[in-house]
Design a protein around this nucleic acid. Structure first.
Lengths: 248, 248
DNA sequence: CGTGCAATTGACGTGGCTCAAGTGGTGTGG
DNA sequence: CCACACCACTTGAGCCACGTCAATTGCACG
């Protein structure tokens, strides 16, 4: 079955370009086949479509294959709080495992492909494949870590530092995925960036404008080009280029 | 060995009052004994002592037995960012599993007893005991969840709402542990509360004063008594008493 | 009884929010 | 193919919640 599918050039973990960022990392061929066999890959999701909604029963975790998505929660007042932007290789749904129901929403920011991983099957498989179990723990740990760093960012840094950090974080994440670290397209709106960083649209817009005026970046709508990463790192409060962003 | 220790009234998971909040939850007797056998329980930590520091190699996770601790990280500018206050039953160190080095610091806020759980042993044991594996995942998931909720709090709620939420969160956590939910002692300073919530000491102090003047609470140094929980929930932006704080 | 940190309180300044108006790009229907 | 509607985004003006700075008090510990 796995040979068959590989011969047919089917999508699978073995031939997935970002498998070393994802669940299959460190798995041997036979374990990867087992994992493959429980994963479902469906039609793409279009911008605005949700993978799941808060309080839906937890069925699957999702791994991003292409495109990008946002995770968010609604507070008691019904306001959205974006908690993450997901790029290829990212896993979605860890925050819901403890409760058996999804704790928030996941929504495509653009046309995106995801791998659906039925949680019960993954749970069983992780009991048989120690390296899979360890990788799940690593990924969850990294997410905890990233959340805590983000927390530090929004509680104590200026708007300017937050936006600069955001730009560098994206840069670093694109780089890890084999894309340019200096030129990329934002799949999220200014308003979504602001929501994520605890700022208003206006502030985000003004700061991007300011960075452009200072020749640190070039912005054209959703397209961003970093001209002076070193300076941006400084503003972000990070050690200068190559500024080590410690995160998942 | 386990019978022996239980007969001798040694400290162990079986007789631990908060084991249902902790790792042993759902473990059968024999599994709990296995867990017990890898756990080390040492002398108490005094206020200001650290369990571990950032970049130390990851040796153990810690479970709080009594007392309380804070977790924090230092950003590149060397400023402290408190990411959690830990009460009995809480596990400490999940954010470091992915990196094999501790990602931050854990420090006692008062004289505290902790159970030290060597990570390599726990990892192995979790491969043999499915219910332990699941409980670890649940606890990690709950931590992710709590972090994301905290993020929502600091990015979008007023100082007043943050302090009110903090008071209710503590109330709920004390209640779960069998303590009074309306009267408790803060083991952290105003400054630590402010750091955690993204506020200054002065703001925290003023708001506690304001709540007192409005007869919502009674504050006396570190002692707090909630007089009108319902109103505090409202200010926190939560549905009124018993206000369901969704968190770990 | 003195030293030092925690907490309170007041006066003042400001970074980022609010409100408002205007621009630009994109998809849609006539 | 154009006109219109709808957003996303930008830009400006004004304001206010919270931070900053400073002085004082309270309290724990040696």
């Amino acid at each position: 079955m796995s040979n068959e599918s590989r011969l047919k050039n089917h999508i699978n973990c073995q031939n997935c370009g970002i498998n070393q960022l994802c669940l299959p990392y460190t798995l041997d061929d036979s374990s990867m086949d087992k994992l493959d066999s429980i994963i479902e890959r469906k039609r793409p999701y279009q911008r605005g479509e949700t993978l799941f909604r808060a309080n839906d029963p937890l069925i699957s975790l999702y791994a991003v294959r292409s495109g990008s998505l946002k995770s968010y929660m609604l507070n008691d007042a019904g306001e959205m709080q974006i908690t993450a932007f997901h790029l290829p290789g990212d896993l979605i749904g860890f925050s819901s495992i403890g409760q058996e129901h999804y704790q928030g929403f996941a929504e495509a920011l653009e046309t995106s492909m995801v791998c659906e991983i039925p949680y019960n099957n993954l749970e069983l498989l992780s009991g048989q494949v120690p390296s899979l179990r360890r990788q799940i723990m690593r990924l969850m740990s990294d997410e905890i870590n990233a959340d805590k760093r983000l927390l530090g960012l929004v509680t104590s840094r200026s708007a300017e530092a937050r936006v600069a950090t955001f730009l560098m974080e994206l840069s670093s994440r694109f780089h890890k995925r084999g894309f340019s670290s200096t030129e990329y397209r934002l799949s999220m709106t200014r308003s979504e960036i602001g929501n994520y960083l605890g700022l208003t649209v206006e502030t985000v817009s003004r700061l991007l404008g300011k960075f452009q005026k200072e020749q640190l970046i070039e912005v054209n709508g959703r397209f961003v080009k970093l001209l002076d990463s070193s300076r941006i790192c400084e503003i972000a409060g990070l050690s200068p280029v190559p500024c080590q962003l410690k995160q998942a």
